[in-house]
Design a protein around this nucleic acid. Structure first.
Lengths: 215, 215
DNA sequence: TTTATTTCTAACTGTTTAGTTGATAAAATA
DNA sequence: TATTTTATCAACTAAACAGTTAGAAATAAA
């Protein structure tokens, strides 16, 4: 049995790609769960079911693994963004798609939210150092900019909307509900974790953004 | 020289209140800076300029000190909220005051934002356990609820606005810009830390919220 | 003034933790 | 088949760290 066949069988005990992937997935969970400082190297290794030393063999150290986790998370996001094709839609369609995508992506990728939260505590020092992440410049802002202009020209949208301010507002409205869900639930003494609350939030955000854009 | 005189002189080397306060201030900085897991007990003690053991003497352990820090932060916030007196204002005035207060409070209390971020990573477990914080129920939501109803009745505001959704949106718009400032700056390759950017953000939030509320 | 209590200090301890070493087994190459 | 390279493991290490101890000094109470 040669190597190629073994790969297909996925029964290999020795395989760089699968070991790295197992570590990356385990690390994503551990870092999202406990933050960079709270995460344990032994915890990551045992979650991945591999020897701890392989973490050092493949990633160097804990912090470099954290950077690799962030990079993988951004690669995933940018890939999804590319599939939106806002440029082919009419302005209202494009905004609706963008808002829905942003909300749903955050809702389904809570680990990403947790990682970003932690990265902000560390003043984004890892993202700032990562050429990979900087290289993945999102085209979303350019696309949004074009959509806002088109909408304004067609008399559908408010004029002179700053795309960065608008995008930050959109991200805020979607992100905060999830990132701060636990403290919000505690302070309001109300359960905000349910599906109904999530759907209500989604609807409210659409209303909020629509009200701002429409003339 | 008796104890009372010494207190007035503020030259006492032995004083429960001042030692606890020094520790609390130092811990607030350290926790905001490095998170619960990143913070060092020795770091807090040396920042405070007191012996490490006093931290255990007065607060029990690191985690109880963290709870005390959160409690002090909430006490401070609730105190400021009380001074708003939204009930005496007309609906638009009240909303303007609330938005301005929320933005400015967050802008001037970045440590609070950092602490909340970290507490969310820990699933709000400390806030949930704290009777002090739960006891400090904010009247803001009741006041906001009343303002929204009054505004709707007077034909100024959109009808049937859910006060919790609205409050979460307001908090989102103010909070996210500061909590995620570092990653936003890195991703957009733009400096969002300056005073001009902050002022632009403040203005945008007013426009956004006004657009939603007005009929 | 003596005794008890409170506040504070320096040195210590046991554990946890990131990271290392050195050897071994599997796979690829010659 | 022999040799080199790659992947994996168990055991170890040094440092960092939260928390403790035992007692001293200041203050208050008796």
């Amino acid at each position: 049995m040669n190597r190629q066949q073994k790969k297909q069988d996925e029964k290999v005990s020795r395989n760089t790609r699968s070991t790295k992937l197992k570590l990356l997935k385990a690390a994503t969970k551990e870092f999202a769960d406990k933050g960079l400082n709270g995460a344990r190297v032994d915890g990551i290794a045992s979650r991945a079911g591999v020897n701890k030393q392989l973490l050092y063999y493949y990633f160097g150290d804990k912090e470099k693994l954290f950077v690799a986790v962030l990079e993988a998370a951004y690669v995933k996001l940018r890939k999804k963004e590319k599939e939106l094709h806002l440029e082919d839609m009419n302005p209202w369609q494009a905004i609706e798609t963008l808002v829905g995508f942003t909300f749903d992506y955050i809702a389904h990728n809570r680990q990403f939210v947790a990682l970003l939260n932690d990265e902000n505590i560390h003043h984004a020092q890892h993202i700032k150092r990562s050429k990979t992440i900087k290289g993945l410049h999102s085209k979303l802002l350019e696309l949004l900019s074009e959509v806002l202009k088109r909408g304004a020209k067609e008399g559908l949208f408010r004029k002179n909307v700053d795309p960065i301010e608008f995008y930050i507002s959109l991200a805020s409205l979607c992100y905060f509900f999830f990132s701060n869900n636990h403290t919000l639930s505690a302070i309001f003494a109300r359960n905000l974790t349910g599906a109904a609350q999530k759907e209500a939030r989604r609807k409210h955000i659409f209303e909020f953004i629509t009200a701002y854009l429409k003339i």
